[in-house]
Write a protein that binds this DNA or RNA. Structure first.
Length: 154
DNA sequence: GCCAACGTTGGC
DNA sequence: GCCAACGTTGGC
């Protein structure tokens, strides 16, 4: 099993939105980046765990943990003409965009981006690299454990 | 709101 | 296949 970090803008979809339906499997819709799609398609397995990260907000950082609940399948929003994720170039025969389902695990003490930057053990995280915009990134097991440790201390 | 970094598009 | 132009992301 692998570990991941999933970004979401809390204005669009926050950890609280997910926590509101703790038993439900929620489609991680709207990913329109090939690298991120490929992570979901090729590497994400049911049971994988991911940090839920709030981006583009007052206090960017990790705010929870989620679990992959269903392996990659076509993202329905690409076929929905009313969706802002609509992709007219994609067809049902050959869907361009796939996504996994996730399930709420827990909210965690927030670990801010500023906090993550303080630790040498995390220096290689994709999220901390300059100019990084990928909304889905792998997290090393050692990094995962380290961040859980930060939460325990909080 | 600014702007650097990045991905995508499309003309050639 | 190159690369300039454009749109988006996301921290600040």
């Amino acid at each position: 099993m692998r570990y991941w970090l999933l970004k979401s803008e809390p204005d669009a979809y926050s950890i609280d939105d997910l926590a509101r339906e703790p038993t439900k499997s929620t489609g991680w819709t709207g990913v329109r980046n090939y690298q991120a799609r490929n992570f979901m398609r090729d590497q994400m397995a049911v049971g994988d765990l991911a940090f839920f990260y709030h981006s583009n907000c007052d206090e960017p950082g990790i705010v929870g943990v989620v679990k992959v609940a269903k392996k990659a399948y076509p993202d329905p929003t690409q076929f929905d003409a009313k969706s802002k994720y609509h992709d007219p170039a994609s067809s049902r025969d050959d869907p361009r965009w796939l996504h996994v389902d996730v399930k709420f695990v827990k909210k965690t003490p927030p670990v801010s981006l500023a906090e993550l930057k303080k630790h040498r053990a995390l220096a290689k995280m994709r999220i901390l690299q300059r100019g990084n915009r990928l909304s889905i990134t792998p997290v090393d097991p050692a990094e995962w454990e380290f961040i859980l440790g930060l939460m325990d201390r909080a």
